[in-house]
């Protein structure tokens, strides 16, 4: 006998009931596409609804990408999916989550982020085919021309870039360099907090796996603006066969500015209310987990904890990210980059 289910599908529940993030389920019917300014902020997040298309953002979320594709607008690669799983699953597999139309966002949605496979070489704004772009600039700044195109580096690898040696002659055709695209929220850390817990429900679909050198995940950043130090705690998902590792620990002064630059955590803005960019002079990168994508073909909740930096009136940024290999960007084969799916990311303090 064949039993046919009559329910619509399986609904994903919230990750936690004590989430410090706002709009963690991408409601409010906003759908940014293709490009916007780094750090772009609405005048009022609470009333930022029904904004779809280019030069838009999500309410409460700030965009960052060093990959300029429309003058001084930079690359957005995302789609939004239904939180109900379809019926094409099995007893052990949930089923796919359908692509939603642009105007469908009052209900909770799954965010899928992906790469570009292009350096957009004809862009008239900042040029992306420039591995040491921004060299000499650290700390908070507003000049987009100084944004590092390289946001992550690998450890030394035969035949490839060796950490600390990026210069004018460094090619983007390099499998040990990455550009990274973020969706960011700045969160106040309570003075009493001694532990930060963060995570999300994540998935890499079997039919849209990350290419070998791409990775994605979530990072939390804390900055010291006296020393321009950034401390990052992150986890990432990667291809099972990924033949590289990332630069971690306390990085050298030459490698630091090329690792984990992004939006400031201070909340400081430029003259147009966009958040400033921050390039660390010193980076401390703590890799909490490196996950194999084949283990996340179905949504799984992941969470990690770390001890925040000491102090009062502290702030941190929470960032969903997709890191795309510089080699893939330069080679521009036009393949699918793979997509990282996230539902209801969260932060908790204790």
């Amino acid at each position: 006998m064949t039993v046919i289910s009559a329910v619509r599908g399986r609904l994903m529940a919230e990750s936690t009931f004590s989430n410090e993030l706002d709009n963690s389920e991408y409601r409010m019917n906003n759908y940014p596409v293709w490009t916007t300014f780094n750090g772009s902020q609405p005048n009022n997040d609470n009333t930022y609804i029904n904004n779809t298309g280019t030069w838009k953002t999500f309410a409460y979320w700030r965009h960052y990408s060093p990959l300029y594709n429309d003058g001084y607008g930079s690359y957005i690669g995302n789609q939004l999916l239904d939180r109900y799983a379809r019926h094409n699953g099995t007893e052990t597999q949930r089923g796919d989550h359908a692509l939603l139309p642009f105007l469908s966002g009052s209900e909770p949605r799954v965010l899928k982020i992906y790469g570009a496979e292009s350096l957009f070489s004809y862009n008239w704004g900042p040029q992306n085919n420039n591995a040491d772009r921004g060299n000499g600039t650290t700390g908070e700044f507003t000049n987009q021309n100084n944004t590092r195109i390289i946001g992550n580096t690998g450890t030394s690898q035969s035949g490839n870039y060796i950490t600390g040696a990026i210069g004018t002659g460094t090619s983007m055709y390099n499998t040990s360099l990455w550009s990274r695209y973020d969706w960011t929220q700045i969160v106040d850390i309570p003075d009493s907090a001694t532990t930060v817990k963060f995570g999300a429900q994540i998935k890499v679909s079997a039919d849209d796996k990350l290419k070998t050198y791409n990775f994605a995940g979530i990072y939390c950043a804390e900055d010291n603006y006296t020393t321009n130090t950034r401390v990052v705690n992150y986890f990432r998902v990667k291809a099972n066969s990924a033949p590289y590792s990332l630069a971690t620990g306390t990085l050298s002064s030459s490698a630091s500015p090329y690792n984990w630059s992004g939006l400031t955590t201070s909340g400081a803005t430029d003259g147009s209310n966009n958040l400033k960019i921050f390039t660390p002079a010193s980076t401390v990168a703590n890799e909490l987990a490196s996950l194999n994508q084949n283990d996340y073909e179905e949504f799984e909740k992941v969470e990690y904890t770390f001890t925040p930096q000491s102090g009062t009136n502290r702030k941190m940024s929470f960032n969903l990210f997709f890191a795309e290999s510089a080699f893939y960007l330069a080679y521009a084969a036009g393949n699918n980059t793979g997509g990282f799916q996230v539902f209801d990311p969260f932060v908790e303090f204790s």
């Binding site: 759908y31 293709w34 779809t52 280019t54 607008g73 939004l80 642009f102 105007l103």
Partner: peptide, 17 residues
């Protein structure tokens, strides 16, 4: 924006932008 947000649709939105 009335179309589904597939790759080709986003390419045309990009070109128009």
């Amino acid at each position: 924006l009335q179309q589904m947000p597939t790759g080709p649709t986003i390419c045309l939105i990009a070109a128009l932008s």
